[in-house]
Amino acid sequence: MIEYLPYVITVLLIAAIYAIFSLGLNLEWGFTGLINFGHVAFFAIGAYTTVLLNLSGVPLLLSVIAGVALAGLCGGLLGIPTLKLREDYLAIVTIGFAEIIRFFLLNEEWLTRGPMGVHVFSRPFEELIPGDYNFFLFPFVLVVLVICYLLLEKLIKSPWGRVLKSIREDEDVPASLGKNVFSYKIQALVLGSMIAGLAGSLLAFYLQYINPRNFMPIETFYAWIAVVLGGSGNNKGTILGALILWTFFSGTRFAQGYLPFSPTQMGALRILFIGVLLIMIMMFKPEGLLGKKEELTLAR
């Protein structure tokens, strides 16, 4: 059994990173009702900013903070032209933004080294950790996840979170009670993007080497499936969703040997399955695994 431990730790580590990434989306979609189809852009911004700044000599912690801040800033800027209009504009604009970011990473070789990617220069406490770094990184990421979870739960249960939920159901009501709906939506989008940026930094620490292929559009929908499967608007559900997703993925790797499909076909099957799952949940169990039916406003 013990020989499987590094593998299990790695799967849990990835699941934890994606859980953080997905918590950001849950704040936007689950609690506020914003459709962000370009969440991966902020993941990428966080990862690249952290690595590139650190590489040019900025201390690691500062680089992470800058990555988080830049992700938040971009989120806010995308919200400005869209959030006063109909809800689907944000979806369209974010989807486009994520693609443009990816093309930017691919093409601006002077900055990002293009398709070659960038090696991670240093990782937190790397010099102090003997042996398998992932055995340190996993608890580290877990602590970050727990902190994110607690801070978000605190927010959601506060008057601030109440306003978000009221926006999700009918934004005329908070507006009639003096709440600046646009400002709250921007705040949710900025905070959600910052969390994605943080997850991006952590992903870079895990991968040690990042390139634009790590930030394909499908990453966004990994977060979507985690949120929707666990129950939109339920942070515990989101974490559970991320865990299930990555357990499933590692399971399919084992299944690979027994199925007559090429790796490409297996990859396609996985995403195909995610698409079907997304449709099925939205059609038949929109409250997800842990969501409350009574609070279901998004998927009526």
Binding site: A268, I271, G275, M282, M283
Partner: peptide, 18 residues
């Protein structure tokens, strides 16, 4: 609601493409 339909449509998109 339209948001639900949008998400279903993206699921359908992933399905068809793959």
């Amino acid at each position: 609601g339209s948001v639900t339909l949008i998400i279903i449509s993206i699921g359908l998109a992933l399905f068809l493409r793959n």
